[in-house]
């Protein structure tokens, strides 16, 4: 287990190739959930947990079932199926085991299935032929990067609600411009690690 490579993968997927600001993935959830800090934090924790487990499950299915049976052309549909099944089962199990946590998370657990990142990470893992720990590290880094993006956005958007924004820009347009400025800041990370 090469810790250097794992750390490099976490940093690169969290900061350098941040999924929201550099690769434009997960934007629907990003703009929808980042209005309040509470929802942003809840969503980012849930997403990171689901992402790590989904990356692990997808790797296992890809390596032990799809490659031997030569079904690699069915990547997309099988990975989406795994994520949907996992989210559904987590939903059901959580409802029985800890109802308080379930009601606290509310609808976010189901919303994760519509996040583009959740399918992008297993596809990238399959394409680059990462091993098990590298896939999980990549998933963890992407979850951390998404959470960072959400928290930064939420903290500024909360203040934008009471600021004096011109009428045509109220609501979503100013949020896009804000995301552009944060993305500009994240451009400073590019070239930090040459993979």
């Amino acid at each position: 287990m090469d810790f250097g490579k794992l750390f490099e993968l976490v940093v690169s997927s969290a900061l350098i190739n941040n999924f929201v600001f550099t690769m434009f993935l997960g934007l629907c959830i990003f703009f929808g959930v980042s209005k309040k800090m509470e929802t942003a934090v809840g969503m980012s924790i849930t997403f990171t947990a689901v992402m790590v487990v989904s990356a692990a499950l997808s790797w296992v299915v890809y390596t032990f079932i799809m490659i031997p049976l030569q079904l690699t052309f069915l990547k997309i549909i099988i990975f989406i199926g795994i994520v949907a099944a996992f989210v559904q089962s987590a939903d059901t199990i959580m409802k029985k085991v800890s109802p308080t946590l379930y009601y606290k998370l509310g609808v976010y657990l189901a919303l994760i299935t519509t996040n583009c990142i959740i399918i992008a990470v297993p596809l990238k893992n399959a394409g680059e032929h990462y091993n098990f720990f590298e896939s999980m590290a990549f998933g963890l880094g992407s979850g951390l990067g998404f959470g960072l993006a959400l928290v930064i956005m939420a903290s500024i958007r909360e203040k934008l609600e009471v600021a004096d924004v011109p009428a045509p820009f109220k609501g979503l347009p100013i949020s896009f411009i804000l995301a552009g400025l944060i993305a500009l800041a994240f451009t400073g990370f590019s070239g930090l690690i040459t993979l």
């Binding site: 600001f21 045509p168 820009f169 347009p173 411009i177 995301a179 552009g180 993305a183």
Partner: peptide, 25 residues
Amino acid sequence: LIMILPAGGFLAVGLLMGFFNWVDM
């Protein structure tokens, strides 16, 4: 150069949205 970077995409969409809202209003 910024308009070609990912940041420019966000800025372009935000500014265009604001412009369309302004025309609408």
